[in-house]
């Protein structure tokens, strides 16, 4: 069944140049095939344009939406919500994580509670946000901050609790103060884990905001997709989805950059 294993070679082992070329060819032709089939079924109207717009139309709409600045007001709303929710998640998650990890005992008491709450899909708390804060930006900010809180908090706890005890003993035996211990030993050792939690948390926060906008909102990029969907403007909807996916991908790349940069210093 598993031919790689049958060959007795690791899956990650390098391909030969010929295989690499073939691999690129397979990927490209799959993409080309997808586009051709898409184009064909829509141009011949085997599939109604209401269900699937033509690829060329999607591209044209995309250029119009992005090029004319039509997307800007909604994007501004979403980014504004993120600019408030993100820092809240960051500070709250980091602070709670830090306080809990002050003692090993605290981490053992609180970590299981926080991680089992994290198992709940936070989205089900969204109706509470909407009920209490309305369908404006406030409910998205609350929802995004709550979503982002958990990974940041849990990774902070994990980062601090996995610092090598030997390092701590070493610091104690050289007479380091509590402050020195924190800044010189604990924080640098925990930083990579914390930062990956920050990246994940902020990304989830951003996606949660888009999710909130999709479910109940009057503005924002998540809402605009629904707006087009409800207006039966499938062509615009597809184009706008491409735009939102692109925004999310850029956000993800930007956040990964942050982790990489800080992780090195």
């Amino acid at each position: 069944m598993s031919a790689a294993s049958a060959a007795g070679q690791a899956l990650t082992a390098r391909l030969t140049p010929a295989q690499r070329r073939a691999s690129a060819l397979v990927k490209l032709s799959a993409l080309a095939l997808l586009l051709i089939v898409w184009h064909f079924v829509t141009v011949t109207e085997i599939v109604s344009p209401f269900f699937l717009p033509k690829p060329a139309d999607v591209l044209r709409n995309f250029i119009r939406i992005v090029g004319s600045g039509q997307a800007w007001p909604d994007l501004k709303v979403t980014l504004f919500e993120f600019a408030i929710a993100g820092p809240i998640a960051l500070v709250a998650g980091g602070l709670v994580g830090f306080l809990v990890s002050l003692t090993r005992y605290g981490a053992r008491v609180f970590e299981p509670i926080i991680s089992s709450v994290y198992a709940i899909p936070i989205i089900i708390f969204y109706p509470i946000s909407v009920m209490a804060l309305g369908i404006g930006p406030e409910s998205k900010i609350a929802h995004g901050a709550l979503f982002g809180f958990f990974p940041i908090c849990l990774n902070t706890i994990q980062g601090f609790s996995r610092v090598d005890p030997l390092l701590i003993r070493l610091a104690h035996s050289t007479g380091a103060s509590q402050r020195q211990l924190f800044w010189r030993i604990m924080l640098p050792a925990a930083a990579p884990t914390i930062l990956s939690g920050v990246r994940l948390g902020l990304m989830l926060c951003f996606l949660a905001i888009i999710g909130g906008e999709t479910i109940a909102s009057i503005e924002g990029i998540g809402h605009r997709v629904v707006w087009y969907a409800e207006g039966m403007q499938t062509g615009n909807m597809f184009a706008y989805i491409v735009f939102v996916v692109l925004v999310a991908v850029i956000m993800n790349a930007a956040l990964s950059l942050l982790e990489f940069r800080k992780g090195r210093s």
Partner: peptide
Amino acid sequence: AIPQITVLPIFVLY
């Protein structure tokens, strides 16, 4: 890596 939430309306459409 594509956030599924963005394509939710397509799922409902189909």
